[in-house]
Amino acid sequence: MPSANLSYRAVFALVLKRDLTIALRHKDDIINPLLFFVIVVTLFPLGIGPEAQTLSRIAPGIIWVAALLATLLSLDRLFKSDHNDGSLEQMLLSPQPIFILVLAKIVAHWLITGLPLILVAPLLAVLLHLNEQSYGALMLTLLLGTPILSLLGAIGVALTVGIKKGGVLLSLLVLPLYIPVLIFATSAIDTAALGLPYSGQLAIIAALFFGSLTLAPFAVGAALKVSTN
């Protein structure tokens, strides 16, 4: 790491760039959760039946639940490799504020996993016969909601990173915290399908986003300190 007198923005950019470079070198880390997302969504019509009406009714829930699970699957790599090779401890020991470092890592995680999910989602919505009026709501809720998934998930990963079999535990810790996002996002999409305004739900998701943006990095920092000592 370069000298201590870096501006916060430079620190943020450095960590972000580092994480993105690492991710681009291990492309399967990006592709696998995405494939999982697509496969889970295609399983539902096979299990439920091909009727367009049923599928369009349950499409928002399926897409969002699959997005939750895909994010959960990808969370593990947020701190794991850094913890294994010791660079996480170096980061915590550096004079830079943990808030910035953690935030940069979470943003990188969202760019690697959340953004591809959003790009694939309309395609899957077509497969599920989502109501045409709902596409805007789907994209907006995913855009605002997936960062929340990354932020809250980071708390769970930070708590379990020191544990050998943390994977199952992680889902137990994180999934209950995802419930409000799921409820408001699917309700916004449903409301949009009826042609009604859904700005209320969107505002609540935005509030959740900003709330977790300001609070989650602190919790992640505290959790990482516990996990690394």
Partner: peptide
């Protein structure tokens, strides 16, 4: 670790409760 999780949970409980009621 459990303390951090408990505090995160206690911030979330009103939100969860509100969202579930509304849902």
């Amino acid at each position: 670790a459990a303390g951090i999780l408990t505090l995160v949970g206690v911030i979330n409980i009103p939100i969860i409760k509100y969202s579930v009621e509304w849902w």
